[in-house]
Design a binder for these strands. Structure first.
Length: 460
RNA sequence: GGCGGGUUGGCCGAGUGGCUUAGGCAAGGGCCUGCAAAGCCCUGUACGCGGGUUCGAUUCCCGCACCCGCCUCCA
């Protein structure tokens, strides 16, 4: 079974094969670094991280680029409000994004270009549009002439006549034309161009950068569904008008809603990653983001993370017990066929998780029954599947206070020894007292035929 | 007004023209345990409403209702 993916432009699921055998070029729209990452930003990162991992498992060399938009109206406004230079805000917020991505075990992209590092490429592209009669200067701005490109609207399936005009008409010939370059204003950063000083329009950076790294045609362009129009539509228009075929597959993930409505800063219902990680471990957060299909909208509430933590703990518990029994498994072994089929079907992670849980149950049964061959097999499969989804527990270790960890590693076994002694003399009042004290401290104790086992966490 | 998505059992969330109708969480029963925890087994018979096609529809078609997204910055 070959990989099939839903393409937004053609509005159909199609067989995927890269332009150049063995190599997949994937460009994903990254954040505008104006304020801390919210849950929607990391959903995007996780969704494409899973795709990238799956393509890698399928044997492709994945060239994954995620841009950073480091110049924009809001960055300028927010920086002024905080009384810092625009580039200082962009840098510090970029750092917050990197921390969030790393916490959620997203592999770093192969390339991470910044808009301000590619002004020259943008100027060159705009010049090509001028040469082709698709761009014009109006006042200090430069605009793309939408009517000069008959295919305009093909990505979002809109007829030009149906596109509502925005209010900020400015000096445009047509209100639906969009800015390629914005003339400088007092107090704003600017760069010199043949059309005067100014800064980039929003869409031009992506077209310029993807061409810089991948050339005129590449395999996958991804982003959130809210980017389909106007951002991706405009990218496609300007690149095609300039003569570049551009993206072969357009992939868009669904939105995260809060209480049934879209999360937005103006509504004041944003969920920020640093806040969420203060209350939940990153494994639970990643599981909750991975679990729904990437193209589905997903409603977010307090229960989602609790449920994700419980479901993940089940998988994690098996890996812990089985690893103790059989040793650490390899994580690069083959995944079950049913799992591969699910992933190949437009990244059917929900069905894949069904397979994963089935194998966990099989593994638990094998573990309880002493069936080593079946247990080892299940562990290897679970390791491969969790690695594919970026949920391998070993990837989340670390970050704790190692000195405290050492203390706990000494103290807990000592207490458990005392408890075992009490149990042997059938002093259950004492043994339960010790266990209750450990539970209260967040240590879960499990008695097994091989003796007591413990871990930090909660239990049902 | 234009374009697109959704409505599944207590909750989340897949999916399918019928066959053994995912998976997780929660709930109840059982096994195991000194009691627990963890694990395993069993139970619950869901597909917004109205038509149509069909031997048979939650799944296809038509209509309706409600919800959501984009059309302005947005993951």
């Amino acid at each position: 079974m070959t990989l099939r993916l839903y393409d937004t432009r053609r509005r159909v699921i199609e067989d995927f094969a890269p332009l150049n055998p063995g190599v997949v070029t994937m460009y994903v729209c990254g954040p505008t670094v104006q304020s801390a990452p919210h849950i929607g930003h990391v959903r995007s990162a996780v969704a494409f991280d899973v795709l990238r991992r799956w393509l890698t498992v399928c044997g492709y060399d994945v060239q994954h680029i995620r841009n950073v938009t480091d110049i924009d109206d809001k960055i300028i406004v927010n920086a002024q409000a905080q009384n810092v230079p625009w580039w200082a805000l962009a840098t510090s917020v970029t750092r917050l994004f990197h921390e969030a991505y790393a916490a959620l075990n997203c592999l770093p992209p192969t390339g991470e270009p910044r808009a301000t590092g590619h002004i020259g490429e943008m100027v060159a592209l705009i010049q090509r549009l001028f040469d082709g009669g698709h761009a014009y200067a109006a006042g200090t701005d430069v605009y793309f002439d939408v009517k000069s490109h008959p295919a305009y609207g093909e990505l979002s399936n809109q007829q030009l006549d149906d596109v509502q005009s925005s209010e900020d008409t400015g000096d445009k010939r047509d209100p639906r034309d969009f800015a390629l370059w914005k003339g400088t204003k007092p107090g704003e950063p600017s760069w010199e161009t043949p059309w005067g000083p100014g800064r980039p329009g929003w869409h031009i950076e992506c077209s310029a950068m993807v061409t810089r790294y991948f050339g005129p045609i590449f395999d996958i362009h991804g982003g959130g569904r809210d980017l389909v129009f106007p951002h991706h539509e405009n990218e496609l228009a300007q690149s095609c008008a300039a003569g570049d075929p551009f993206a072969r597959f357009w992939l868009h993930h669904g939105m995260i809603n809060i209480g049934g409505a879209k999360m937005s800063k103006s509504a004041g219902n944003s969920m920020f990653v640093p806040d969420l990680l203060a209350g939940y471990r990153p494994q639970a957060l990643r599981y909750s983001l991975v679990a729904p299909h990437y193209r589905s909208d997903s409603d977010w509430n307090d229960d989602v993370l609790d449920e994700a933590d419980a479901a993940y703990s089940r998988i994690e518990g098996f890996i812990t017990r089985a690893s103790a029994e059989y040793g650490e498994p390899a994580t690069d072994g083959p995944v079950p066929t049913a799992f591969a089929d699910a992933m190949n079907d437009d990244l059917g992670v929900p069905a894949g998780l069904g397979v994963l849980h089935d194998v966990v149950r099989r593994g638990n049964t094998a573990l309880a029954g002493g069936d080593e061959a079946a247990g080892r097999q299940a562990l290897a499969e679970v390791a491969a599947m969790t690695m594919t989804l970026g949920l391998w527990p070993g990837d989340f270790d670390g970050g704790n206070d190692s000195a405290l960890e050492k203390v706990v590693a000494e103290v807990v076994p000592a207490l458990l020894e005392a408890r075992q002694a009490a149990r042997e003399r059938k002093d259950y009042a004492e043994s339960d007292r010790i266990r209750d004290a450990l539970t209260a401290a967040g240590v879960v104790v499990e008695d097994t035929p091989q003796g007591p086992r413990w871990h930090v966490g909660t239990s049902g």
